[in-house]
């Protein structure tokens, strides 16, 4: 059956972005995922939250292809990973940026890998820097920058390819509190501007709720989705958002589930 162009576009808009089916992963001492199914919604900022060692990072690492799953299928609009453009931000920015390249060349590197000509690379980097309103001297090398600036560079590096989906693995947990607050605002800004499907692994519930449209709460391993919490407070969210009743009740609800899951261990 043939769909009209309009119907197809509508279907694409509402269909899940990523479909995970039958995902299984065993490490030497534990089964982390056993026949795990999940759909990642399109154009939402989603956080993954759960007890220690339940496999939060493992999940996005497998989705982003950092290491293979033992079994299962992960498709992006029905396509495999190597057909799509995505960005990945590591927790350990110090070891993820390239110290031999200037900040500018770090951000441009994925474009170089894709074979984009130099002129176009420079334009794209300048565009992303301008859109984030970043005021760092990009001729500096990473080791001449603060931790937050380095992580900002690696976030821009992930965004410069216009990714269809953005993964962040505890991106702010190695930063001091002041920088963390600043970086949350930067990430929110990116999301408001691009509405790129974003998957954030966080170990900070307040951060997860504050930033997210959806919070995936996982059980202890073998991990299964316990609840998929919706939080639809309007953006841009501010410090005031965190004092509102809806935020407080959502956070309390997540905490309750989290503690129930922890106690089960």
């Amino acid at each position: 059956m043939e769909l009209s162009a309009n119907a197809r576009a509508a279907a694409t808009r509402t269909a899940p972005h990523v479909t995970i089916r039958g995902l299984s992963k065993r490490f030497a001492d534990a089964t982390i995922y056993d026949n795990f199914d999940f759909d990642i919604p399109r154009g939402k900022l989603m956080s993954v939250f759960g007890p220690n060692g339940c496999g939060k990072s493992t999940l996005i690492n497998m989705i982003a292809g950092l290491f293979p799953a033992d079994k299962g299928e992960i498709l992006f609009d029905g396509q495999p990973l190597n057909k799509i453009k995505f960005g990945y931000v590591f927790q350990n920015y110090r070891e993820a940026v390239f110290p031999w390249l200037s900040a500018f060349d770090n951000i441009a590197y994925p474009l170089k890998v894709m074979g984009v000509p130099k002129k176009e690379r420079n334009l794209k980097v300048e565009k992303i820097v301008a859109s984030l309103n970043v005021k760092i001297d990009l001729n500096l090398y990473p080791y001449q920058m603060s931790g937050g600036q380095q992580q900002l560079v690696s976030i821009m590096r992930a965004l410069v390819v216009d990714p269809e989906i953005l993964f962040l693995d505890e991106p702010f947990s190695a930063l001091d509190y002041e920088m963390t607050l600043f970086m949350r605002e930067q990430l929110q800004r990116v999301f408001v501007e691009t509405h790129t499907t974003t998957v954030l692994v966080s170990h900070d519930l307040e951060e997860a709720v504050y930033l997210s449209d959806r919070i995936l709460l996982l059980s202890r391993h073998p991990a299964r989705p316990v609840e998929f919490v919706h939080y639809d407070a309007p953006r841009p969210r501010t410090d005031k958002t965190m004092t509102e009743a809806e935020f407080i009740s959502t956070k309390a609800h997540c905490l309750e589930i989290f503690q129930r899951e922890v106690r089960k261990g």
Partner: peptide, 28 residues
């Protein structure tokens, strides 16, 4: 650094490019 190699791979770098762009410079 394993993370740096992974970072290049995640950006779509081939094995040869990882060797050339990352491992070679890491070993400098």
């Amino acid at each position: 650094r394993k993370t740096r190699i992974l970072a290049a791979k995640v950006m779509g770098a081939s094995r040869l490019r990882v060797l050339w762009d990352v491992m070679l410079l890491e070993s400098m």
